[in-house]
């Protein structure tokens, strides 16, 4: 795992529980209520999708549902914005590519 790039702001007390999900096969710890993007950024995973044509890395950008750059693929759900998707225990997440 690369170095963590995001941490909780001092004074922010997240939900005490813990859960984990997988991203590209790696186990990612998360707090209940936390979004997938938040957990991934805390785990030091800045690349949330790769582009279709040039395979370029993309990550969290607008944080408000405009850009969809933080899209990830969740098994059983489809492509979602990771910044607006709460992490669920055991969810299987991959770099965004939709599947029929």
């Amino acid at each position: 795992m690369p170095q963590p790039k995001m941490r909780f702001i001092p004074g922010v007390v997240p939900n005490a529980g813990t859960l984990s999900f997988s991203f590209e096969g790696n186990e990612i710890p998360a707090r209940p209520g936390e979004t997938v993007a938040s957990a991934l950024m805390r785990a030091g995973v800045p690349v949330l999708r790769r582009t279709r044509i040039e395979n370029q890395p993309r990550g969290y950008f607008c944080g408000m549902g405009i850009c969809w750059e933080c899209a990830v693929f969740v098994e059983g759900t489809g492509v979602v914005r990771s910044c607006g998707e709460p992490a669920r225990p055991g969810m299987v997440v991959r770099l965004a590519e939709a599947e029929v």
């Binding site: 279709r52 492509v79 590519e97 939709a98 599947e99 029929v100």
Partner: peptide, 9 residues
């Protein structure tokens, strides 16, 4: 039209 998806059809 849908978002792009892995080629299947």
């Amino acid at each position: 039209v849908t978002e792009p998806a892995r080629p299947t059809i």
